[in-house]
Amino acid sequence: MSFLDVKDLKIHFPTDDGLVKSVDGLSFGVERGKTLGIVGESGSGKSVTSLGILGLHKGGRARLSGEIWLDGEELIGASTEHVRSLRGKKMAMIFQDPLSSMHPYYTVGQQIIEAYRIHNDVSKQVARKHAVDMLGRVGIPEPARRVDSYPHEFSGGMRQRAMIAMALSCDPELLIADEPTTALDVTVQAQILDLMRDLQREFNSALIIITHDLGVVAELSDDILVMYGGKCVEYGSAEDVFYRPEHPYTWGLLGSMPRLDREPTERLLPIKGSPPSLINVPPGCAFHPRCPYAERTGDKATTEVPALAETEGGHLVRCHMSREERRGLWENEIKPVLETQ
């Protein structure tokens, strides 16, 4: 069993308009020292998954089922109290928007100290010293002075660093970063990605990075999980997903993206239509209304949900087309077009 093992996780929200199946049968694992990238568009269920792992849906209206094993402990059945005691110490999260996820009324230092003292029986002075250390570790200049600053006195990049310091203050073994750099400029994004990579190496924690940016995923991930409509559609090593992708949605994402590392093309190759509503996920394969190859599998596309099947060495794909058909399409049709980009 991996350090984090998620099995058939379902997170459903009953609403007046119907049942929203945000996450519908997701399974994955992450080892210590490894990074999993979760990619998907808005509404694919990637953030809901991360909140689910942290136990932040408890007490809400969400209906959870499945299993989440963290270091041999099951979390879905565990008490709220117990999950709370793990949060911060065993697992921590870096949120997308550091300004709205830090408390504006308290100094950055107070917020780190609070989290540290909940899990460690130390005096305020010791905790404060630790906070200064952490701020220094993540590259904030003059940490001894900045520890008394309020979040609004920090720039965007510094706030994100402070948030990382806070998340790492108790040496969590699992760190989840939900769009950690989306709100940042590219030069600052590069700094934060470098920092996260260095810190992960130092702490040997398991890292889950959730993003819509394939570039960010490629920078950090060992494994990649592509989500669509609450389900995993492709899972594999970074090399599998970038060099041998087999799901039409992954092809679509790769074709939609203008790339700086290749010669520019005349046109991008977008996916037609827009992501599905989670109340009304299309029957059969959720991607079929947007899939250019849906007709190849006939009625099956609209009536039967394809299984997530292994194609080779841990590379999983959820598609009705046969392995040979997908590989043929990738090698002969998709790859040549993408490579000329």
Partner: peptide, 27 residues
């Protein structure tokens, strides 16, 4: 130059042998 080297490249092989220009500080 710094801006361009900061853009993450969607290619897992490239990340390992790329020396990125790291800009210090903020704007």
């Amino acid at each position: 130059n710094a801006l361009m080297s900061a853009v993450p490249v969607p290619d897992p092989k490239v990340r390992k042998d790329r020396d990125r220009i790291r800009l210090k500080g903020d704007v």
